[in-house]
Design a binder for these strands. Structure first.
Lengths: 111, 111
DNA sequence: AATATATTCAACCTTTTGGTTGAATGTGAA
DNA sequence: TTCACATTCAACCAAAAGGTTGAATATATT
């Protein structure tokens, strides 16, 4: 039903630069908590909390293997965001074209 | 250049349900501050603050006409969001199809 | 000029957020 | 068993967010 709360969680999770960086890291493939945390200039605990926020938003899934937790990226929650944008037609109008073009340009850049 | 800060402002603005509702209202056309505020169960001042956040994110533009301020919706900041999503390819992959389909369904529903 | 309307500014309060450090838990390695 | 490692839990803190009320400002209306 795309509760407003779901959308809130998704957008709130996305609104933080650290969390966006984490997602970008994970979009390149699974990684453990420590690995994800390494590049950041903050405590492991802080990163762990950010991961929890992403997990609550279902943008990240955790797979426990012994003492290691493997994190992976989950795109599903973006459906709600896309839906909201579609509902706010004028809002979104034209953006889709821009996005399509961006993606096409990216494809064109790679052989 | 799509500063991380720009993206932050956009997504932070979008992360609040009141502000999303305001944008939806404005996507239906210009309105004054008081008009925008009316449906909400909070003080005019609170709504005024939300509008300032949307303005700072450039999602809303203000046109002063005497004592009345007319607000209108501005979609441009979403470019940065779209760009970020395009950059996080795996992240976004598949979502575009879903969005396209949603929009096509909407179009089909209207003669 | 006096009053009403549209809006923001300022001060304040409470809750949430993003970070810290230190201890606890669970698992693997010596 | 003992020690190291991976991760979270708990308590704490400062700053930001979201709301309130009351006063200020600017513009209309009478």
């Amino acid at each position: 039903m795309a509760t407003s709360q779901t959308l809130d969680r998704t957008l709130t999770a996305l609104a933080d630069p650290t969390r966006r960086a984490i997602l970008q890291r994970l979009s390149a493939g699974e990684a453990r908590v420590t690995e994800v945390a390494r590049p950041f200039n903050m405590s492991l605990n802080a990163v762990s909390k950010h991961i929890l926020v992403l997990e609550r938003a279902k943008l990240v899934k955790r797979r426990r293997m012994g003492r290691e937790h493997f994190l992976s990226y989950r795109p599903e929650p973006l459906d709600a965001a896309a839906k909201w944008m579609a509902e706010t037609r004028t809002f979104w109008a034209g953006r889709l074209d821009a996005l399509e073009q961006l993606l096409r340009e990216e494809d064109a850049a790679k052989p």
